[in-house]
Design a protein around this nucleic acid. Structure first.
Lengths: 202, 202
DNA sequence: CCGTTTTCATACTGTTCGGTAAAATAATGC
DNA sequence: GCATTATTTTACCGAACAGTATGAAAACGG
């Protein structure tokens, strides 16, 4: 995973930094969704020409997948980290406060890339939608497994349905993303999150 | 609000039923969002030609607004009716079970038109987004007022924050819409709704 | 029958979409 | 310098987009 090749490559060197260009692409996709972002938008924001984009990133869909990857390892990493909290309640608290915290950063786009791009649905974006649905499914499964542990460990009531509880927490998070994208203020988002935490079982 | 004019109009009679055509348009917008639905999609599903659509409905944006109106008075009417339940808990129960019930109808598109179209965001759809955000705001205000009544009436704890509680319920509903649109099964949606009901304050 | 009115069907407008062909340019090893 | 390799630039491609001009067709009152 080194980005620094040991010997300089043979041909003409690239005149832009692929990392910062990918960051610009992520911000645009995040703000406008997959279909809402045109190649002209992308090349303008990334400061490169169209063929350079294709040479470096393949095509629009692959560029989106790369941006999604960076999003999941970057801004959305707090969700995965939250799984390592010691109790189910702390997992939920950290997730809810994490997403609210991120959505409160004025330098970042509002809402959530995964939700944002999932619902824009021309027939052309179908593979993207499937990929995002698969990711959400995976995230929910990880959360369910963590809650099963919690039930076994005793920090959730014995009769709890881990699957439903995971779905519920995901639903609240997605709901927060929708409202954030719709312009709800950070303090209101936080109040909602605190309310969800307050009603958490156990 | 009569749809039957007393005297037959002068010119050539319309060869299609504007009501059923609008229904087809609603279904398409609901399934694919605003930007994801092209005029060719619309005319094909409505069984009419392009100029007929423009003559009868104005343009794409106005057609969407008409479809939205029909959606709010039809499939989404249960949300407004729920406000008339006697207690805050029953309001929440009816809303949550109502949206799940609607999303479980296999003949209807998944998800929620208001959420679906709200996040598809090319610059062109901005007025649509604003209209939808305004509607969601209005809905949340109605819910807040209902909860304030409930607090005054004693069926919600005295210290409850009506605004946050309304936002929380809207968030859960929007989250359910996202997951429904992503292919979650009706039984899972129902389990999530029941869980939210179970954790309702008071 | 005729003139009027409105809707119908066909064909088209200019623009934007994602993607690419081709030549100029800048670095390499020799 | 020279061939090679990869990236840059400019210009373009066919398809799809929202919206429309035009004339034929179908109802009416007379």
């Amino acid at each position: 995973m080194k980005t620094e090749p040991p010997h300089p490559p043979k041909g003409r060197p690239r005149a832009f930094d692929t990392d910062v260009a990918l960051g610009r692409a992520l911000e645009l996709f995040w703000r406008q969704g997959y279909e809402g972002t045109s190649l002209s938008d992308l090349t303008a924001a990334m400061g490169i020409n169209r063929p350079s984009l294709y040479a470096a990133f393949g095509n629009k869909e692959q560029l989106f997948r790369l941006a999604l990857n960076r999003y999941l390892r970057g801004p959305a990493a707090c969700l995965g980290e939250a799984l390592r909290e010691p109790t189910a309640r702390k997992v939920a608290e950290r997730m809810l406060r994490g997403v609210v915290g991120q959505m409160s950063d004025p330098k970042l786009p509002k809402g959530c890339l995964v939700v944002q791009a999932a619902l824009s649905s021309g027939t052309e974006a179908d593979p993207i939608r499937e990929a995002l649905a698969a990711h959400r499914n995976e995230a929910r499964n990880a959360l369910r497994r963590r809650f099963e542990e919690a039930i076994a460990g005793g920090d959730l009531p014995k009769g709890t349905d881990a699957t439903s509880l995971a779905g519920y927490l995901m639903a609240v998070i997605h709901g927060l993303a929708v409202q954030s994208a719709s312009g709800m203020s950070p303090r209101e988002l936080q109040a909602i999150a605190e309310l969800a935490i307050q009603h958490w079982p156990a």
